[in-house]
Design a protein around this nucleic acid. Structure first.
Length: 176
DNA sequence: GCAGTGATCATA
DNA sequence: ATGATCACTGCC
């Protein structure tokens, strides 16, 4: 116990440099780590949604590059955080190459079911927007994958995207 | 079923 | 400057 392991279980930026649906699925069962007030907690990711890119009419990036969506055009592995309904901070992780605006919404982890509850419990706010998912940010992912079956369903709350895109099964849930 | 809440974006 | 919208939650 006297030595610190050299290898880390950190999920590196390359993990996120893939299509959003692949990343969304692969994140299930991984551990979302949060450092708060000097304490560290880890939560198993249990629900995600993929926002594929500018052609995906449910994605914020479907209407072009704006101040809000700017970080989606940045490097994979950066957090994209925004406020919805004036109350709830949504936590997303940017995926794919620089210049290509796609992301994965973290909807549930551990006992925290629902993206608004997750954001509140983890004290997510605009200060996390654009930060890399690394320990130095106080919020990151680790590898160890917990087993379970994966269910794919349509995404929640995206009816505005029209039937074609709202019906796509881009929400992924881990069932024990 | 629907109120709360405020940033964001299009319109002007 | 104004108004519609919103990747939600909790209480009626």
């Amino acid at each position: 116990m006297s030595k610190t392991p050299i290898s880390t279980t950190l999920l590196r930026p390359a993990f996120f440099d893939r299509p959003a649906d692949i990343v969304a699925r692969d994140l299930l069962g991984r551990t979302l780590m949060r450092r708060l007030d000097g304490n560290r907690m880890g939560l198993t990711v249990t629900e995600t949604e993929a926002y594929l890119g500018p052609h995906d009419l449910a994605s914020h990036s479907a209407h072009g590059r704006t101040a809000r969506t700017e970080v989606m055009y940045g490097p994979a592995g950066s957090f994209y955080v925004y406020l919805v309904y004036g109350l709830h901070w949504m936590l997303n992780i940017v995926t794919g190459p620089i210049g290509y605006p796609a992301a994965v919404l973290i909807r549930s982890a551990g006992e925290l079911e629902g993206p608004g509850k997750l954001g509140r419990a983890l004290a997510i706010d605009e200060s996390m927007n654009g930060r890399p998912a690394l320990p130095q940010s106080g919020l990151w992912f680790e590898e160890g994958k917990r087993a379970g079956s994966v269910i794919a369903t349509p995404r929640i709350g995206v009816d505005y995207a029209g039937p074609r895109w709202s019906a796509r099964k881009l929400r992924f849930v881990l069932r024990a």
